[in-house]
């Protein structure tokens, strides 16, 4: 079980957190001007790397705050957002 460091509460067990997928995928300023393809890419396409991923977590069983970390999808090493 991974230890994830919540920026508010400190290091806690993975089971206290909820995964939120890749970070840095901003909601478009005006979705109405996007083409179907651009909107589809925003909705469904993520980088899915084998290696370090910048991703979002929420400390659901703790302070309920969202934050992001860098996690290696192969080794599960978790580090702070860079």
């Amino acid at each position: 079980m991974m230890i994830i460091t919540c920026p508010w509460c400190g290091p806690r067990n993975e089971t206290e957190f909820h995964y939120g997928g890749e970070a840095g995928v901003a909601y478009p300023a005006d979705p109405g001007v996007l083409s179907d393809e651009e909107w589809g890419r925003f909705l469904f396409v993520r980088s899915n790397p084998k290696g370090v991923l910048h991703e979002r977590w929420s400390h659901n069983a703790g302070c309920r705050r969202w934050f992001s970390v860098h996690r290696d999808t192969v080794t599960h090493e978790v580090g702070p957002a860079r």
């Binding site: 659901n60 309920r64 705050r65 969202w66």
Partner: peptide, 11 residues
């Protein structure tokens, strides 16, 4: 409630 918090905090 989670959905509301997610939008408020992240977007």
């Amino acid at each position: 409630l989670d959905w509301m918090e997610e939008w408020l905090q992240t977007e």
